[in-house]
Every structure is written in C-alpha cells, then in structure tokens.
Amino acid sequence: MNVLELKNVTKKFGDFIAVDQMNLFIKEGEIFGFLGSNGAGKSTTINLISSLLRLSAGDIYLLGKNIAQHRRFAKMNIGIVPQDIAIYEELSAYENVRFFAGLYGLRGTELKKHSEEALVFVGLGDKMNALPKTFSGGMKRRLNIACAIAHRPKLIIMDEPTVGIDPQSRKYILQSVRQLNEMGCTIIYTTHYMEEVEEICSRIAIVDHGKIIAEGTKEQLTNIITDTKEVWIEVKAIGSFDAEVVKQMKGVNSVRVEEHVVQIISQAEVTNLHEILHYMISQSLEIVSLKEQAPNLESVFLTLTGRNLRD
C-alpha cells in the first residue's frame, strides 16, 4: 500500500518552477531518503506534502486520500521534524510536546500519556520539566522530534534531523528513526549526510531542479553508474592542485577535493590514471595512497547532478 503518492506535482513561485511535475510514491513501512542539494526542491516538496504550501498543479494522496480534499485527515496523519529547531525556549520540554500534541485533538490523560511517552522515546524522560535553553544541541534536536511524534502520525517527515549535533546524539536519533519505523511509521528522511542515507534508508530519490532524476534502492541507484569508475587519491598536502586542469582530461566526469583527498569520477572505458598521476607529480604533490572505489551514493549523486550533496 502506498502511504504517499505524488502525481504531476508542480509548484511555481511566479515564473520560477520549484517543483516540476514530480511523480513519486512511498510505500508503507519505508524509510525513504530524499536527496538533493540546496535549492533542488526538497523543502518545497515537503511543504506541499504537509499542506504548508498550495499546489500549483497535480495531486498528492496520503493513505489513498487526496490531501487537497482531506486536509484535516492528512494533517492528523503527518508529523514534521523541521530542519530548524521549532520549540518554545520559554516552555519546558513537557509543555512544548503537550502544546503541539494538544493541537491534534489529544486531551486529558491521553494527551499527558502521549506527551510523556514521546519524551521518553527520544531519551528526555528525565528532562521533562527542564527548559530547552539548558539543553545541548542534540537534546534540542531530540525534543524537536518528540514534538512531531506525540500525536502518533502514520507518516513522519524528517528534514535534516541531525544537523549540527555530536556523533552520540546522531547515533541516538538514527536509532530512534529505525525504532519508529519498526513501530509502523513510514518515514521520509532528508539529509546532507550520505552515510546516514546509506545506513537507514530502504529507498532513495534524488531531486534536482524540482524533478526526481533517480529513484530506487541503494543498489539500484549505484547500478545506474556502471559506466563510470571512481578513484580516490590521498596526498600529503593539496598544494597547487587545480581540479579544473584534471576536469579537462580525457574521460573525467567530475573532480572533488576534500582536505587531502582527491575524488575523481571518470568514464569506465577510458584509461586516464597515468595522465592524472603525471599531473599530480608535476605539481610536486606527494601521493600517500591511491584506491579505486566502487560507486556509492555520493558518486551517483555527483554523477547525476554534477554537484556534491553539500553544495
């Protein structure tokens, strides 16, 4: 059963088309990775699904019902974890969760129970009466999640839920996402961290210029780029290395430099490694290691969009 279905969804802001005839379906029980660089149309799509924005064209169905005609039903069944932490610093953790859950029709003991359970779920059971201003970034992110799940939505949309937090909190959040999924929630997960997508998402869509340019499981996506190969060259110091020079070489699709590592994606049938190494030696770069990497989501994204996910 499809929990969510987008049919020819379009959103225009004046002449600018933010989402362009997007078609998408998400099955019940999936953790669906939604990848795209900044401005690709991810947030607009999320805002359309959550009824924050009005559609310019197309239809969105949640659990088989058109959300334009069943707005309340749709809102009752969606939980949003916004990218920016959306809590009241003046209210305690419990008051925050209770207030937002109260907007979903929960009252009395049921409201109390759901609010407390949500806080316990995210590991803030012992901080219910504390004010968020005393929280670390990771704790605030967890409270941000608790506010979105207390009303027990069927579909949870998590927009960059791990931005700017310590590894321990990130681990906790990823574990929470898996647990929510095991409890029956379908999850849309957007992030700039490819390793998170690879770790938890069962299916992934790559969005660019308001369109879905690739969709499938991790394996399906990496298979798209069998015609390319990826080489990682680690150097002692990046010095005078010029990525533009390498990009001009025969068969090179893209070059990415991160600290001391140069990542080069080339056409599989072209032999150009000797030329690349010759250039690096000519620039007096001391090569520490060299390895050929099997295509991963990062390289798929780079190949398909021409950009890094974090651009």
């Binding site: 707005r71 916004p82 932490i85 959306a86 809590i87 009241y88 610093e89 506010c147």
Partner: peptide, 13 residues
C-alpha cells in the same frame, strides 16, 4: 522567528 510557525501551520487547525 522561533520556527514554530511550521508546527502550527502543519497542525490540523
């Protein structure tokens, strides 16, 4: 400014 507008906006009210 608190970003809580998103939560109010997506709530069934």
């Amino acid at each position: 400014t608190r970003n809580t507008a998103i939560r109010l906006g997506v709530a069934p009210i």
